[in-house]
């Protein structure tokens, strides 16, 4: 039996029994952790809003094994807020729906290595939530930027200029989800699409963090770009992200 301390972002909270919840966190040192927050649904709970989705917390767990994963789920004994993004996101419906898609993607991309740290994904997630809560950019753009970068961290970086197959210098016209991004005329597989050059430029800007170029983009290019990002994500995750369907785009 031991006490462990880590910091993490709450990704999901599921009801358990009368007044408890199972909290899924992406932690800095232990990757994905599922733990029980006892009595959290009672109005007098000591946790309150600290273990709600989007919360960035410093958390202490009690585990029955020596290390994660222990025997049964660990129990959250203390939680202190480092960043409360949920309150601000819940007041902006578009930001809330984009934020939930970010949380679901972060869980899916890190869940297969439970107990192992995923530091880059963790830092990327905190950056995305902070940007979303600040409201500096359109929520859909923040979501697409996060999806592209988290895929890149997971080893699935798409190409938006050079040919993803033969490396031919870009710009290239064709885009293939299974081909890994833009492809040249010689390499293009069946089913390749021809997005507008502005859309490819927007996606490149989102991947590299060129917000000036991304913010100046037109809504039709954002719509086309989101479709390509969603298809690319689904191809690599094999299963769709449920919350993407409900994201409110401007």
């Amino acid at each position: 039996m031991s006490l462990l301390r880590d910091e993490g972002v709450v990704l999901r909270a599921q009801k358990l029994g009368e007044a408890d919840r199972i909290i899924t966190l992406l932690t800095r040192d232990h990757g994905i952790v599922r733990a029980v927050a006892r009595g959290v649904r009672k109005t007098k709970s000591k946790f309150g809003a600290r273990v709600e989705p989007f919360a960035h917390v410093d958390v202490q767990f009690f585990t029955r094994g020596s290390e994660f994963p222990g025997r049964g789920l660990p129990i959250i004994t203390q939680a202190e807020t480092l960043g409360a993004y949920g309150g601000r996101l819940a007041l902006d419906y578009a930001a809330y729906t984009s934020g939930t898609a970010i949380l679901e993607t972060a869980e899916r991309l890190t869940d297969h290595e439970r107990g192992q740290p995923a530091l880059q994904q963790y830092l990327l997630l905190i950056g995305a939530l902070r940007t979303l809560a600040m409201g500096a950019h359109e929520p859909g753009l923040v979501l697409d930027a996060f999806l592209l970068r988290s895929l890149a961290v997971a080893g699935y970086a798409p190409s938006f200029v050079d040919c993803a197959r033969c490396g031919l210098d870009g710009p290239n016209r064709f885009f293939s989800v299974q081909g890994g991004g833009t492809v040249c005329g010689d390499c293009r597989p069946a089913g390749s699409v021809v997005p507008s050059p502005e859309t490819l430029s927007l996606l490149g800007a989102l991947l590299t963090g060129d917000w000036g170029r991304a913010d100046a983009s037109e809504p039709r290019h954002r719509r086309e770009g989101s479709g390509l990002v969603a298809a690319y994500l689904q191809w690599h995750l094999e299963r769709g992200i449920r919350s993407l369907r409900l994201v409110e785009r401007s």
């Binding site: 709600e52 989007f54 949920g86 996101l89 819940a90 902006d92 419906y93 809330y96």
Partner: peptide, 11 residues
């Protein structure tokens, strides 16, 4: 008064 409830109220 949780995240889902607040977002539903906003909507």
């Amino acid at each position: 008064p949780n995240l889902e409830g607040e977002a539903t109220a906003t909507y």
